[in-house]
Design a protein around this nucleic acid. Structure first.
Length: 453
DNA sequence: TTTTGAGTTGTTCGA
DNA sequence: GTCGAACAACTCAAA
């Protein structure tokens, strides 16, 4: 460490102090200014729920830094070099972020730094950096299962200890940025997770104690809600997947292995995006001849949870209310939009990204492509989820559906999944089904098959 | 180079 | 009600 030197650590998707190699590198260099820049382009695209969640995470990070997080507002290409100049820093530290937008943004920022300032990127938000896992011919994997095998074989680093004592430098935050956080927090949805590293680890340990060992089964029950709920924390790097893998590493149960597999999916999709930046919003593997519908009213019914299909409506309302949706239900609602309404997947992916607190470009959009049949290991064209069967199978108690659709509260047990069978002469206000599933399934198969002839 | 086995999450139909 | 087969063809990965 050189005496008197200052580094800026620019936080992005690494809002934590523990196990943060880039921050450790900055601290090893000298005094550290911790910076977060609210990028209007990114901020405006996030829905109210994710803005609130980001604001909560930033507040928590600020507290853990003794109130010394410097917040700025503006395009990073101007805001970051400004702060670097203000504190007379000679290095800028970041954690790598390899999404298409981030790569472009970071190149521009580095180019805009004064010549005497060096940029240093350390680590990634992944256990294995995107682009690392390759097959025998040195090419990236196209399908998940072999990727996962190789990813496990590659192994991941152990968590690094927190920097023992960061000597934080203080600089005023931009009042406009502070006001944006206040505003975002005021609009926070109910059920937002507790922000902060400690809360995340605590939540994860509770999951390990209570839920992980029969995770293979329990994860599919949206009513029981026994998933780890780590996705919002992972979104902003409040925890690093390395930490989760280390915490669960001692368990060799099927459930723990399945959980690791879910982490591997996140890593796989980041890898796919790394190699195929265009797949964020374009078909990774287009289905030849496939055409789409644009049924505006039906799309709006889907968005608002008024399709008349209980499990679909429950999920869509949970998304609007909480900024979160159970994964099983994400698949069901995505299948409904793409296969029952025949809508192009980016329409749904955009809506999800707008509202999800964990909205992650790579996982969200490739998940959508998987459902739509345009993604990795394209699903057989005939795989169309039946929203009624799925509801009965995965929410047999009907608890999930009744929780989110009050109009169905009068229906006991699984009857909540088939309200049309339970006419009691009263109008409970639940909408009629907007489509006939059997008919739309046939049409979906037709559309997918057309290009093959 | 060729071959072979396999591919997250499903549905329906008929025995 | 349960269970197995059919629903296509293709691409990938590794032997």
């Amino acid at each position: 460490m050189s005496a008197g030197s200052t580094a800026v650590h620019w936080f992005r998707r690494d809002l934590r102090l523990r196990d943060n190699p880039a921050l450790a590198a900055a601290a090893a260099h000298g005094d550290v200014l911790g910076l977060f820049v609210i990028d209007p382009g990114v901020w405006d695209k996030a829905g109210a729920a994710r803005r609130a969640w980001l604001a909560a995470c930033l507040r928590s990070l600020d507290e853990s830094m003794g109130g010394r997080l410097c917040l700025r507002l503006g395009k990073p290409v101007t805001a970051v070099p400004e702060v670097v100049a203000e504190v007379g820093a000679d290095t800028l530290h970041v954690t790598n972020d390899s999404t298409p937008y981030a790569l472009k943004r970071d190149r521009a920022v580095v180019a805009a730094l004064p010549g005497s300032v060096t940029g240093a990127a350390t680590g990634t938000p992944y256990a294995v950096p995107p682009g690392t896992v390759r097959n025998g011919s040195g090419r990236p994997y196209q399908v998940f299962t072999p990727f996962e095998r190789a990813w496990r074989a590659h192994g991941w680093d152990a968590p690094t200890p927190a920097p023992s004592a960061v000597r934080w430098v203080e600089r005023d935050s931009d009042p406009r940025a502070v006001a944006l956080l206040d505003e975002a927090l005021a609009g926070a949805p109910a059920g937002l997770p507790v922000p902060g590293e400690d809360a995340a680890i605590q939540r994860f340990r509770a999951f390990l104690t209570g839920d992980v060992d029969d995770y293979d089964e329990a994860r599919n029950d949206p009513g029981a809600d026994r998933t780890s709920r780590m996705s919002p924390y992972l979104k902003y790097g409040v925890v690093h997947p390395r930490q989760l893998l280390a915490e669960s590493g001692g368990r060799r149960t099927d459930g723990a292995t399945t959980y690791e597999k879910e982490i591997a999916w996140r890593e796989f999709y980041a890898d796919v995006l790394f190699h195929n930046p265009a797949s964020a919003w374009q078909d990774l593997r287009p289905v030849p001849g496939l055409t789409y519908d644009q049924p505006e009213d039906a799309i709006e019914a889907w968005r608002t949870g008024t399709t008349g299909f209980p499990i679909v409506d429950a999920g869509m309302r949970q998304l609007l209310a909480e900024g979160w949706m159970h994964n099983r239900v994400r698949m069901i609602t995505a299948s409904f939009l793409t296969k029952d309404l025949h809508v192009w997947w980016p329409v749904g992916a955009r809506h999800f990204l707008d509202h999800l607190v964990d909205g992650d470009l790579a996982s969200n959009n490739h998940g959508w492509q998987w459902v739509a049949g345009t993604g990795t290991d394209a699903a057989p064209y005939f795989r169309v989820f039946n929203p009624i069967t799925q509801g009965l199978k995965f929410d047999p108690s009907g608890d999930y559906v009744r929780r989110w659709v009050p109009e169905l509260a009068h229906l006991p047990g699984k009857a909540a999944h088939e309200p049309w069978d339970q006419e009691d002469g009263h109008d409970h206000g639940y909408p009629k089904r907007i489509v006939d599933h059997a008919e739309e399934r046939r049409r979906a198969l037709e559309l997918y098959q057309r290009g093959r002839e």
